[in-house]
């Protein structure tokens, strides 16, 4: 696992059924592109988050393939329709095989 990785997510606590809400996500990650050289002249190995997904009650909301040009601490903001109360599950996949997860509940009201 890369150092200092911490996911953060902002989801409204509740919404009316059928409402569209805005979700903000940010994960602290160095996103080393694999194209830079270190002080010793050798390439610094690539270490990025290569995929981000969000599911609502098991159904895919967004599935993003991420590339090396994305800068440090990737921030992803998107909209989602909320048909019912439930749980948003967020998953980030690291190059080194680590998987970072977090989840947020949303109520109808």
């Amino acid at each position: 696992m890369a150092d200092g990785v911490k996911p953060r997510v902002k989801v409204p606590k509740k919404a009316a059924a059928g409402d569209t809400i805005t979700i903000k996500t940010l994960i602290s990650h160095k996103m080393e592109s694999g194209q830079r050289k270190g002080k010793d002249g050798n390439l610094i190995p690539r270490s990025i988050i290569n995929r981000f997904t969000c599911e609502f009650n098991g159904k895919s909301v967004i599935d993003v393939t991420m590339e090396p040009a994305i800068s440090t601490n990737p921030y992803v903001e998107f909209d989602s329709m909320v048909p019912e109360a439930g749980e948003f599950k967020f998953t980030w996949y690291d190059d080194d095989g680590s998987v970072y997860e977090t989840a947020k509940q949303i109520a109808i009201g």
Partner: peptide
């Protein structure tokens, strides 16, 4: 604060 990347340093 959520959008401010500087807050990551504050959290740390």
């Amino acid at each position: 604060d959520f959008d401010n990347p500087g807050m990551l340093g504050v959290e740390a």
